[in-house]
């Protein structure tokens, strides 16, 4: 089990790093929104995996909030960007 947990940690950390690269490089605000959304999904996956490996389900309700929050933030930034574009 430990080996699997380490593998998953490494893979997800790599994915998060790549998403961060896109957040930094941009170039537009929408690229950053998309990258942030992916980053959030990776974090949700990481917390769920952590819960699975430790067998501790305390963090699961947090994930419900996170998965809805990502949606709200994407939509609000998209609206903001639309208004600025005009």
């Amino acid at each position: 089990m430990t080996a699997v947990a380490v593998t998953v940690t490494v893979i997800l950390a790599g994915a998060a790093l790549l998403a961060l690269v896109r957040v930094v490089r941009g170039p537009s605000i929408l690229d950053r929104v998309v990258a942030t959304d992916v980053l959030l999904a990776i974090i949700v996956a990481a917390i769920a995996a952590e819960a699975a490996f430790t067998g501790d389900a305390t963090a699961l309700p947090v994930l419900v909030v996170l998965s809805v929050l990502g949606f709200v933030s994407s939509v609000s930034v998209a609206r903001f960007a639309a208004r600025n574009g005009k």
């Binding site: 893979i11 790549l18 998403a19 992916v38």
Partner: peptide, 9 residues
């Protein structure tokens, strides 16, 4: 997730 990260960059 890693594939999404690679594609993103």
């Amino acid at each position: 997730s890693l594939a999404a990260g690679v594609a993103l960059t």
